[in-house]
Every structure is written in C-alpha cells, then in structure tokens.
Design a protein around this nucleic acid. Structure first.
Length: 489
RNA sequence: GCCGCCAUCGUCUAGCGGUUAGGACGCAAGGUUCUCAACCUUGUAAUACGGGUUCGACUCCCGUUGGCGGUACCA
C-alpha cells in the first residue's frame, strides 16, 4: 500500500544548505509527520556543472543537525530510489525518448545566440520574451539535414494555448494563460533532461502526493501540469510557500543576511531547537498565542491552512531571543558540553583548563547561562574564570565620581576581611562584605564594583559573591591584590 | 514591459462583517539590584490609498500604489 501522504525535499547541491530551503524542508517534514506520511529527500544534481559533493554533504549535515530525518533518500532505504538525479539517467532516458517521438514536443536547433537576439528584440518591443516556435514546423528531412551538419538539437515542449487552472494548497485558486508562455526546453542539446522534466518524473515515480515548495516555483507549476498531461501521469497537489526576505525586502541572500545553516547558524552557536522554532514561526502560526514549540509539538500542531500567504522578513533579533530562551532551558551539564567545542576554538587554554576541571566548568557556565544568546559567546563571557592574566585599565576600577585612593582603600579593607573567611561561600561572603560596607560607611556599589572589576576585568558580570565563591579564595585574593597594585602604581 | 503572488504596529503575526484591533521580538520607563543579564509591571506603535457592497468594513468586490517572484538549453 502506498501512503496517502508522501512529500519530498528536493534541493540542488549547488551551495550550502540555505536558511530558506531549510524552512521548506521543515514544512514538508511537518506535513508528512502530521499525516503519518513519508518525507523523501531527493538530491537534484542534474546540473552537473554547478552541483558539488560538498554541497550535498552540507545539506545532509544541516538537515540532520535540525533533526529533520528523512524516511527515504540517498544512503537510506527506499523503494523508489535512487534518490540522486545523477544516478537516474536510465530512468529519464525512457521519458526523453517518449517525448522525442511525441507530438507534444519537437527538436529545436536554435542556437543560444539566436535565442538571445530574439529575446532582446522582444524586450525592446516591450513584449514578454517568448520563444517564437520557429522549429515547431521542422520536417523530418530538415531535422535529418541539420543533424548531418553536426548540430545537436534540444527538445522543446509544445505549449498549447489553453488556460491552466489549479488549486494551490496555500495560495488558493490559480489561473495561467498559457498562450503567454513560449515552448520551453525539457532536454538540453547535450541530451540531459532539465529541471522541469526530471523534477516531475521523479515526483511521479516516487509517488509524491503533495509538493510544498517555495513561491519562486509558482509559475513553473502550470508548465509542469501540462507536462504531466502529455506524459499521461497523475500530478501531485502543489502548495507554494511564501518567500523569506532580507530586511530590505529583497529575496534572502547570503550577502545581506546570514543564510548558510551550518556556517552561519550551527557554527555560530545557534541551537537546532531554536532554529526550528524560529523557522516555523516565519510564515506559520499556531491556533493560539503560543510561541515556543519543540519539533514534536510542531509535528502535531502544524497545518497548512495556518501558513501565511505573504513573505516574511528574516529578523535576527527574534532568533537571538529564541536562542537565548532555549539556552536558558538547558540542563547545565548539557549546556557545558555544547559550549566546549566553541571554547576549544576561541580559547584553547581555557578549553584545556575546563576539561581538567569539569566541576569548575559547570559552575562557570551556570553563572553565565542566562546572559548567553549564542554558544559562541562562551569565551567572552567566561574568560576570567580561566588563566591568570586580566587585561584591563586601572580607571575601570574607579566608579564615576569616586577617587582612586578611596577605592584602593576600600579594596584593602575588603581584602583584609576576605582573608579571614574560612568557608568561601556566597552567603558568608555577602555577610562579610556587606559588613565591610557598613563599617566604611559607603554604598554597596562603591566596594562591589571595584571588586567585580578586579575579579573579571569587565564592567558587567555575574554577582560578586557568586564570582568570589566560584573563583575560590586564592585566585580571588590575588586578583584583588593585583587591582590594588594597579591603583597605586 | 508582460504574467503571477502579496499587502495589519519597525519586525513576526492574531483577526475570518459589529473587538478598547490581540500576542511576541525590538524600543522606552519603572520594579528588583553590586554591574550586566534574567524576571515582573507599564508604555510605544499598525489596518497602504481610492472607490464600491452593506445598517455596519481590517475583514467581501474593483481599481491605484507599492513590494516580491517569474519571464533561461539554472534549479
């Protein structure tokens, strides 16, 4: 038995997995899960020049990272394989032959130059560029002659003058006057079938029931519908997803926005669950005002009628917010493990120290958990927990409207009190230092601020008492002493 | 140019003829406070325009404008 719902994600491996494509994949995946169907991954590498194995690997990695596992695809079982177009040449051949002999298509010997010239003329005359149909009437002997001259023909599909109507799953009723379209090429002069053809053959052979693709394919749909009819094949249902745009409203691109899933998101410290949540909310909304969704939630709550028709602008601030939210939800051990690779990259020395002292790492990470929006911030956020050299300007120790000498004295007083503490825990520390503040008749900030800077070299940090406690007595006292020295220099 | 899609706060969006036009991000103010963050409270801000239809339009229809997409022997 065939499943009722079979959807596919069919990227061409001509670059890194793109954010927009990933969202298309997500929506397909969710649609399949929602209806208990199958999610098929098909690699459309029919463009041999632009396709690369690296790109395919990146796509597979990206999808896996997001958790969008495919039921059928390259390197996994499936009855309708192979799932890579470059391995399906034999399959296409039969269809190519059929079209070549069919009255619905014909050989076209027009050269690229001729076509370009024709197009240019039409544009100048303010007409919609459209193939003239020049080769439509070529006779058998014409074809034989041209072939003898060594000319390689392309195969063009004869577009009939009719109005094609279909019901888009997302956009609703659609109507195209095909007399406005020229005959399009389905097989190149090199003998290789083109997108419009292969894409449709595969959808048909792979028993795809619903095609959810980006809106830039909308005007391909009537052409493919015509092809389906000519081949006597059943067409799937089509749904076109609104595009994702740059902040300047142009189609999302690498120049204006981070776009590569692996490079710009995974490697920058975004969490897959945040990406999923963010992507889902770009063009889809739930029945209520809920805004946090796991992949599992989405699998049950997703529905096409809640997909919006208008394009959405990619808003990185919102992504950062959602990512921060998911970081805060992490168990501290898991978060530490996620941070480690980033630490290894940005601060190898700290990485080594952190690995040697896992408990200490845990404490450091838990201290900055709610301040982190991306995992790659781990180094700037925790650098002062590792190593001994703090680089900061002595001026930083002195709050506005305070005197250098006063601050040095406060620190000395604090240092003296801290030396007496046996158990270096937050509660003890707080009691002691607040006592010091009272004795000195100053405000909390006047003592705590310079201590913070002494401990971290930063003007923003976790609470001073927690900091002291985690850093430990020895490290803390030394840093305060260093600060005093700095001030008195 | 032609064809198509789209149009609510800056952004993501709710709304499916009668609402104080709701939520979230952002921003601002306040609370908490040793700083930052988190958290809580409050505020800010939208129906592109013009015609219809209707007792009544954000909502339905038409037009205009604008944005985007397509217009390939790319996918």
């Amino acid at each position: 038995m065939d499943e009722l719902v079979r959807v596919r994600f069919a990227p061409s491996p001509t670059g890194k997995l793109h954010f927009g494509s990933a969202r298309t994949a997500l929506f397909n995946y969710l649609f399949a899960k929602k209806f208990g169907g199958k999610f098929v991954l098909r690699i459309e590498d029919s463009d041999k020049v632009r396709s690369t194995p690296e790109s395919e690997i990146d796509i597979l990695e990206g999808l896996s990272w997001l958790g969008l596992s495919w039921d059928e695809g390259p390197m996994s079982d499936g009855r309708y394989g192979p799932y890579r177009q470059s391995e399906r040449a034999e399959i296409y051949k039969e269809f190519i032959d059929r079209m070549a002999e069919s009255k619905d298509a014909y050989y076209c010997f027009c050269s690229q130059e001729e076509l370009a010239e024709e197009r240019e003329k039409q544009e100048k005359a303010h007409q919609m560029p459209k193939y003239s149909g020049k080769c439509r009437g070529l006779s058998e002997s014409d074809i034989a002659g041209l072939t003898k001259e060594g000319k390689k023909p392309a195969i063009r599909f004869k577009v009939s003058d009719e109005v094609i109507e279909f019901d888009d799953l997302i956009k609703g009723p659609m109507k195209f006057d095909m007399s406005l379209f020229g005959d399009f090429v389905i097989v190149g002069s090199d003998g290789n079938p083109l997108f419009l053809l292969t894409n449709l053959i595969d959808d048909s052979l792979m028993k795809i029931s619903h095609v959810l693709r980006a809106e830039d394919h909308l005007s391909n749909t009537p052409k493919q519908l015509l092809l389906f009819k000519a081949l006597g094949l059943m067409a799937p249902e089509y749904g076109h997803l609104p595009l994702i745009l740059n902040p300047d409203k142009s189609k999302i691109s690498k120049r204006k926005n981070p776009a590569s899933l692996t490079e710009d998101f995974r490697d920058k410290g975004y969490l897959p669950e945040a990406m999923i949540n963010f992507m889902a909310l770009l063009g889809w909304h739930p029945a209520n005002d809920k805004e946090i969704f796991s992949l599992g939630d989405l699998e049950t709550e997703f529905s096409l009628d809640k997909v919006s028709k208008s394009p959405a602008i990619f808003d990185i601030q919102r992504l950062d917010y959602i990512n921060g939210y998911y970081i805060r939800q992490k168990k501290i051990g898991d978060l530490a493990n996620l941070c480690l690779p980033f630490m290894e990259k940005c601060n190898p020395a700290a990485f080594i120290e952190a690995q040697a002292k896992p408990e200490y790492l845990l404490q450091a990470v838990s201290m900055v958990q709610e301040r982190m929006k991306r995992l790659d911030e781990i180094c700037e956020l925790t650098h002062y927990f590792f190593g001994n050299d703090l680089n900061y300007d002595a001026e930083l120790l002195v709050p506005k409207n305070a005197k250098k000498s006063d601050i040095a004295n406060y620190l000395k007083a604090g240092l003296a009190e801290l030396q007496e503490i046996e158990i270096f825990g937050p509660d003890n520390l707080e009691k002691t230092l607040i006592g010091t503040v009272a004795k000195l008749k100053i405000t909390n900030g006047e003592l705590l601020w310079p201590i913070r800077v002494a401990l971290t070299g930063e003007k923003a940090s976790p609470g001073v008492f927690e900091l002291l406690s985690v850093l430990g007595k020895e490290r803390s006292l030394k840093r305060i002493q260093d600060a005093i020295t700095k001030l008195e220099k």
